[in-house]
Nucleic acid binder design. Structure first.
Lengths: 146, 146
DNA sequence: TATTGTTATACTCTATAACTATA
DNA sequence: TATAGTTATAGAGTATAACAATA
């Protein structure tokens, strides 16, 4: 029995395509289904700031967007009063991003409500599926950053 | 021991965000790293046609894009001679998409070369990681189509 | 009157390049 | 001369709405 290696190669090619397609569909739907006022990529930056990322450059690297894209996201977050910008005293070229009280409150709300499209779908999954997603998330993150 | 349920909820919220971020980064990078001339979403449609999807509407549903978006993709594929359009004899409103010889050759080439950004990364993974990705792909596809 | 597909239009997101200021 | 950040511009991709042809 066993699978011929040519077939294994095909399987990998199909997996690569199915995975790409799934990622793309998920990306689009998360954005589209987002209803909470604050778009997912902004929430994501709030999370990253809380985890310790502190400058626009650091955040851009973490989220894998260009610095101009991060500037725009930070403009929105600042306009909504969720983060604040301040100059770094040691090197005034760089900008320090900090969470405001409102920003922290928004994070708390997201954690408490769990009312996002993705979380609702995760809640319905079996333990095995969830475990696979956890592992896959780690793998995909590493691939994405590589 | 065990994890308090509030913490479990948080874990799910963070997983949801990390997963969304990973999907988004993968989507962007696959597109950006694509070098083979034929972009990934076109390859994906070729695969789908070969698997039996036969009309623009069916293909749009499978790839989760609007029918206008699929029309554009099919225009490109037809211009490159990889698929052909023909009218359905039974209902001439609908269009049948078929692979051309060149389209089939392109698919064969993709399978044979395995030279895409994603496949290259998959090849370096452990069996456990791959298995997690297989399972995650299924789960994400189902969530995406739901 | 409903359905398949296409065309027209507008919008969102993203990156690259140019610019400002600090070092 | 190099770096952090912002602003300006342009390109890719997407969807909704309007339209044409057929049922």
């Amino acid at each position: 029995m066993g699978v011929p290696s040519a077939s294994q190669g095909s399987e990998l090619v199909e997996l690569a395509n199915d995975l790409r397609l799934a990622c793309q569909i998920i990306s689009r739907r998360v954005r589209f289904e987002s209803t909470s006022g604050i778009p997912p990529h902004q929430i994501s930056v709030l999370f990253a700031v809380r985890r310790g990322a502190q400058t626009p450059t650091t955040l851009a690297e973490r989220e894998r967007v260009s610095t101009p894209a991060m500037t725009r996201t930070l403009n929105s977050l600042e306009a909504e009063g969720l983060v604040s910008r301040s100059r770094n005293a040691e090197d005034s070229r760089s900008v320090l991003i900090t969470l405001t009280g409102r920003g922290q409150a928004v994070i708390d709300g997201v954690y408490a409500s769990r009312d996002t499209w993705m979380v609702r779908h995760l809640e319905g999954l079996s333990g095995e599926d969830l475990e696979a997603l956890r592992r896959a998330t780690g793998v995909l993150s590493r691939i994405g950053q590589a």
